[in-house]
């Protein structure tokens, strides 16, 4: 596992249409020295991925293209396929989780999650 020091300087794209949730995670990451890009929809994710973040944290339920759809697109493209992807979702059924992984997620976190769970997943993802 990486220490906080090793996360420092990395960049993360975080996507959630619920602003409070997004901000909370962004704030936690920024306070640990990460660069954070925030996206409120699937389309924004596809725009902002050009910033080449070290990892993407993305909610599944978003208006417009949902998280699963965006995941499929990212993994299809050659220049974005290698970016570690962490999916967050209030859908916690076994089938939902399997679907997430099938769409190319490196981690699938069922809400509710704590910030430190997100951080743990992020460390693992970047380390891999």
């Amino acid at each position: 596992m990486l220490s906080d020091d090793e996360l420092k300087g990395k960049s993360v794209l975080i996507a959630d249409d619920e602003e409070y949730i997004r901000r909370h995670i962004a704030k936690g990451l920024r306070s640990r020295g990460l660069t954070v890009y925030e996206a409120g929809s699937g389309d924004e994710v596809l725009d902002m991925v050009s910033e080449k973040p070290h990892a993407i944290i993305m909610d599944v339920q978003m208006p417009g293209q949902d998280g699963l759809e965006v995941a499929r697109l990212l993994k299809e493209k050659e220049d974005t396929a290698s970016i570690p992807l962490i999916l967050l979702s209030a859908r916690a059924q076994e089938s939902d989780i399997e679907l997430g992984y099938a769409m190319g997620a490196d981690h699938y976190l069922a809400k509710p999650v704590t910030f430190s769970q997100i951080l743990g997943a992020l460390r693992e993802a970047i380390h891999e």
């Binding site: 619920e18 949730i21 909370h24 209030a90 059924q93 069922a110 809400k111 509710p112």
Partner: peptide
Amino acid sequence: SEEFLGESERRLIQQEMFQLEDQ
């Protein structure tokens, strides 16, 4: 227990959990 939580409940709890984290 998560199995028995509905999607909306999970969202709600997520919200509260982050609020506690903020506090």
